[in-house]
Design a protein around this nucleic acid. Structure first.
Lengths: 313, 313
DNA sequence: CCAATTATGCTCCGATTGAGCATATCATAT
DNA sequence: ATATGATATGCTCAATCGGAGCATAATTGG
């Protein structure tokens, strides 16, 4: 593209497709990665691709061997790394995919990584992680008071909202806001790249190339939000499951615990599932009834609402 | 672009930006249009644009004279009209903008069109519109039973869910699903273009160029959803207003009526607003107190939730 | 048989929500 | 000035929902 720099020149742009593919494996919410967990499956939109979605599916399958089921669009953004100087830009269109790990024997294992390897502060199933009080919050407070245009009150307020300080509740949906605060505060590896000088070491949590981790945060936030009003857990569950398994999946995704009896009450009164008639005794105690999702719900899923109870304070 | 048709050739793509700009004027939800209401503000992403959002703002301002405030991304899609044959594709990135009509005297008037000019079946403030029972549903039922791969049960079910048949409640959020059903059924002008032969005339409601009306439907659906859990009405209200004005705005957007006393209770208990101390007697009856949104809420808007009560069945 | 473990049923209570009655305060017509 | 119509605003009541916990049932492993 040798285009003169006329500002009104229409120009063409490279398009990248990228996927956050989520599954729950071993009671752990995971994302499908490549490059030893350093990147999300992604690739350029090519002439041979019938559509954006088709292109994405091709890339994911080619890079990971995994065939996608349900996907939805996440976000489109102009890659901020390149924004500054180069006139030649790229646009990334990201998707969220929900699946199960249906690897058959003999196939290569996929690289499923726990969300919480990348965002250890997001798993509150065993209470607020210690890194929050020990590392993250103290450093954020330093940053809030430190130099900068909008330091002080304003910054502290954003932190307090995002991390649930001063009596505010922890809101598990604010994954992206929390990551972006850490980024702005220079507390994640991605924010330090290309900057000279010595920095305080980043906060715990694996990083990824470019802004893949930010996209991952966007996907997690979307799923945590959506799970509360749309029956999307379906896509993540095996065809038949116990209510406890379902509960564990929800807990894994939201990073919070749920009141068992109330969870069952809710699920049952919403008529999302039906008994198969079978029971399982894979666990130690009393055998659990097996359930499947009701076919009607699968059909009405676009419309139907699901309320999932997440324990508050 | 003279690219050989190698399917794995990476290629570059034109990017269009498009906006659904919403405001409530005269208790009527409106969108900013151009070309006598036939199109949404839109234009190509150009080299001179600092970012996608900046490009969008430029185009809207240039085409309508309106300066955008709050915007959020709606959806990105490969234009389906061009998908079929031409290898040279375009991608449209659409945004939802929320504003008020702040036209000063002397400025050219903007072309604000009522949503319900385009989607007359979406306004249920005076009960279900007659066109539904008189035109739309009968024709949809004919289509459901007519020829086609997935005719019959399946189609009927989709219609029933989207339009609230057989005891199902009307769900005001399903704007897009309803439009798409009408499109599939060949009942809107856009679906008939380029098809030969005589057709049954389309259902009432203005059409737009390309798929602009579909984007508009997407925007309306998004706003109707979002208004229920995020305090976004703010962006649409003047700095000071009465509770009834606020209620009318919500009703206009959702297309449904709201229980007055409960609406007030909800708004007040959520501490979204505060009294200014003033009252107004612009209306006939008892003067109403004036309110403004609480500054805290404006700051926490990303996080805070708003529950707006929409009357059920 | 006992202890540990998991499943499942049921109760209680406070908060939320839908619906409606009653009263207050204004403008306008008579 | 008085009645009427209109809007604003306060309050009640019942139904439902949602959070929390107790109690019981059905297993497995000593």
């Amino acid at each position: 593209m040798n285009v003169t720099q006329d500002p009104h020149q229409r120009h063409e742009v490279k398009v990248d497709l990228m996927a956050v593919v989520a599954a729950v494996i071993d009671n752990c919410p995971r994302a499908l990665t490549i490059k030893q967990g350093k990147a999300l499956p992604s690739g350029p939109f090519e002439l041979g691709h019938r559509s954006l979605q088709a292109g994405l599916r091709d890339w994911v399958e080619q890079q990971t061997g995994h065939r996608l089921g349900y996907i939805e669009q996440l976000y489109t953004f102009a890659d901020r790394d390149r924004m500054a100087d180069e006139p030649e830009r790229a646009i990334s269109i990201s998707y969220l995919g929900l699946t199960r790990d249906e690897r058959k024997d003999g196939q290569a294992p996929r690289d499923w990584r726990s969300w919480y390897d990348y965002f250890p502060w997001e798993d509150h199933r065993k209470g607020p992680p210690a890194i929050l009080a020990d590392f993250i919050l103290p450093r954020l407070k330093v940053w809030a008071e430190g130099p900068g245009e909008e330091a002080g009150e304003e910054r502290y307020h954003r932190i307090a909202v995002a991390f649930g300080l001063d009596g505010r509740p922890w809101n598990e949906e604010l994954v992206l806001q929390r990551y972006e605060l850490l980024y702005e505060a220079g507390l994640v590896d991605e924010a330090l790249r290309g900057r000279k000088g010595s920095h305080t070491p980043p906060v715990p949590g694996r990083s990824m190339i470019a802004d893949h981790r930010r996209i991952l945060a966007t996907g997690i936030a979307r799923l945590r939000t959506k799970i509360k009003y749309r029956p999307v857990v379906f896509e993540l569950m095996p065809p038949v499951f116990t209510l406890l398994q379902l509960q564990r999946a929800v807990e894994a995704l939201s990073g919070r615990l749920v009141h068992k009896q109330n969870f069952r009450r809710l699920i049952e009164q919403q008529e999302l599932v039906e008994e198969t008639g079978e029971t399982t005794s894979e666990t130690r105690g009393r055998p659990a009834k097996l359930f499947r999702f009701r076919p009607v719900v699968l059909m009405e899923r676009t419309a139907a609402g699901t309320k999932l109870p997440v324990i508050r304070a």
